[in-house]
């Protein structure tokens, strides 16, 4: 596993782990613009959420952040360095679980390690220790077709984790999990991401989830399919007191602060509906 780097600090200012500068995104070279003016950043140890209605371009933005696509305009900086259009340095969990049907679960989750040149044996040994932790105990030798949707999602989670980058992009990572597991996995993720000083960008449909997890929420607005490019309608910083660690729904979601944050997000989203 690669060592996680410390955030570089220059002249007192913190350089974000990942930063997007004024991205303009299109799938067809500019004929239809999906999103424009997308600027966001995330620091190590932070989780930011992107919320927006279906089809507004959340996945499109994440693709650009991962380096899989080149934005029409703008830059993606990784620890201050220009990484626009260069995949391979940011962990990305796509919207589907994308397990390879011809590989056993253990081989699926070890794929990032094997690609980086770790021997299969070493990779297996390392990953095996994490199976219990990810609620996957006993599934090592099974094929993906033998797992339930939620289990497959966890396997995808473990695989993303094993990509080992300290920046992770997650596209609706909890959507295929049942409500109870979702709460568990969510708080587990927040805890892990913070303790490893990871920077995460998480897409979600669920406003509660965003308010629960995020240090900052980017609310997206626009209907690219109707010719209205998506922009960032607002940015909400979520302050929690220490006792209510992020991801801990049961405590935080009962506070008036939670409701007020949720209100803010909903207002920004609904604004869009009215037009």
């Amino acid at each position: 596993m690669p060592e996680l780097e410390k955030t570089p600090v220059e002249g007192g200012g913190v350089i974000p782990a990942l930063e997007a500068l004024d991205l303009t995104l299109s799938w067809d070279g500019g004929e239809h613009i999906v999103a424009r003016g997308i600027s966001l950043w995330v620091n190590n140890g932070e989780i930011v959420c992107m919320v927006g209605k279906s089809g507004c371009g959340k996945t499109t933005i994440l693709h650009a952040l991962s380096g899989l696509t080149k934005p029409l305009e703008g830059k993606v900086l990784l620890r201050g360095e220009d990484f626009t259009g260069r995949p391979g340095s940011v962990s990305y969990m796509l919207q589907k679980d994308l397990l390879i049907p011809s590989k056993r679960i253990i081989d699926n989750v070890c794929l990032p390690l094997v690609i980086k040149g770790t021997s299969k044996r070493e990779a297996h040994k390392f990953a095996a220790m994490l199976f219990e932790r990810f609620g996957l105990g006993g599934t090592e030798r099974l094929w993906p077709s033998q797992l339930s949707g939620g289990m497959r999602q966890r396997a995808a989670f473990l695989r993303t984790y094993l990509q080992g980058n300290n920046v992770a992009l997650l596209d609706e990572p909890f959507s295929a999990l049942d409500a109870i597991t979702r709460v568990d996995m969510r708080s587990w993720y927040c805890e892990m991401a913070r303790s490893l000083q990871m920077a995460s960008v998480v897409i979600t449909h669920d406003v509660d989830e965003a308010v629960t997890m995020a240090d900052r929420i980017y609310v997206l607005k626009g209907t690219p399919s109707a010719g209205v490019p998506t922009t960032i309608a607002g940015e909400i910083c979520v302050q929690r007191d220490e006792a209510m660690a992020a991801g801990n729904v049961t405590d935080f979601s009962l506070t008036p602060e939670f409701v007020s944050y949720k209100r803010q997000v909903l207002d920004l989203l609904e604004d869009d509906e009215v037009r």
Partner: peptide, 17 residues
């Protein structure tokens, strides 16, 4: 699935891989 290939590329996989 083209998404599968995208995922492989985010893992830094070569064309051969």
């Amino acid at each position: 699935d083209p998404d599968m290939i995208d995922l492989m590329r985010t893992m830094g996989a070569s064309d051969l891989q």
